[in-house]
């Protein structure tokens, strides 16, 4: 059924954005706006694929991707927190530098330009739920998805709980909102900020691996297609609230899935592929305008 296919694809395309957005959300709560999420996704996608091919094990591949993203995150965080570099400039620098390094690595290690296809790549398994799988729509929503998708959605309430109820969550919020005050109380704002950026890197690395070993099974230097920026839009628009952020990620996933269905129907593919990005801008603008109107009406 077509509608089931679109729903299934929407869930799939939401996962990478959701993972990166939840990481970026924690990072922003901790006081760093991470515009380099996309570079961490790219690193995770590449190392995830290589390790999946080497070991034949998807959990090990995910660990490798998380580590790759985390290392990029740590490097970026140290540049911002210890060298007092501007977070926007450093983020841009990492986007360009990681893309360049990836291309260099592909050509020098594999002699390939832009695309890497490896043998015996362990793909993420699908979890089929008996009976539910046969129910229309519900089956497409719940069944046939991989563990990382389930983990990503489980992280939404966990993130809510973590920020509101745990010591680390409270400290992270304090450090992001009032670093001076937190320091005066004996907290270490820079270390907490580094920790949150490493977490953002880990989550983005997983998001990247999801694209390479979950969705397509090969690596391409354009594999992230700017999803790190969509993630940025998601947590910005969700104002650091995990459920609102997830909704925004889902919105993108839906249009991404729709776009895939629209391909090959006479409209140029390049144009169709811009649809999810354009729609995210349109919807976010519309919601923001509606919100402003509602506020203006309130007495």
């Amino acid at each position: 059924m077509m509608i089931d296919n679109v729903i299934h694809a929407a869930v799939v395309m939401t996962t990478p954005v959701l993972l990166a957005a939840l990481g970026g959300l924690i990072n922003r709560v901790g006081g760093l706006v991470n515009i380099g999420l996309d570079s961490m996704m790219l690193a995770g996608a590449l190392f995830g694929l290589i390790v999946a091919s080497m070991t034949g094990s998807w959990p090990v591949a995910l660990l490798a991707a998380a580590a790759a993203g985390g290392v990029v995150g740590l490097a970026m965080s140290l540049a911002v927190t210890r060298l007092q570099a501007n977070e926007i400039i450093v983020g841009l620098g990492f986007l360009v530098a990681v893309a360049g390094l990836v291309r260099f690595f592909l050509s020098s290690a594999y002699g390939s330009s832009g695309t890497l296809s490896l043998p015996d790549v362990a793909r993420l398994p699908r979890i089929d739920i008996p009976f539910v799988a046969d129910v229309p729509i519900l089956g497409a929503i719940l069944s046939g998805h991989d563990p990382l998708t389930w983990a990503a959605w489980a992280m939404v309430p966990i993130t809510v709980w973590f920020l509101a109820r745990t010591r680390l969550g409270l400290r992270l919020r304090a450090v992001g909102a009032a670093p001076q005050a937190a320091r005066a109380l004996g907290l270490n704002p820079l270390a907490l900020r580094d920790l949150s950026t490493v977490y953002a890197g880990v989550m983005s690395g997983l998001a990247g691996a999801y694209l390479s070993i979950g969705v397509v099974g090969i690596f391409n230097e354009g594999i992230t297609a700017g999803r790190g920026f969509i993630a940025l839009a998601a947590f910005y628009f969700g104002r650091n609230r995990p459920w609102a952020t997830a909704t925004c990620a889902l919105l993108f996933g839906f249009f991404d899935a729709f776009q895939i269905r629209m391909q090959g129907r006479g409209i140029p593919a390049e144009l169709v592929q811009t649809l999810p990005y354009v729609m995210v801008i349109v919807v976010l603008t519309a919601v923001a305008v509606a919100g402003r109107r509602a506020r203006a009406r309130r007495p």
Binding site: R171, R173, A174, L187
Partner: peptide, 14 residues
């Protein structure tokens, strides 16, 4: 006091 935190969260912070 850190904005975005409640009074009690500020009280116990750190």
């Amino acid at each position: 006091l850190a904005p975005g935190l409640t009074l009690i969260e500020n009280l116990i912070l750190a």
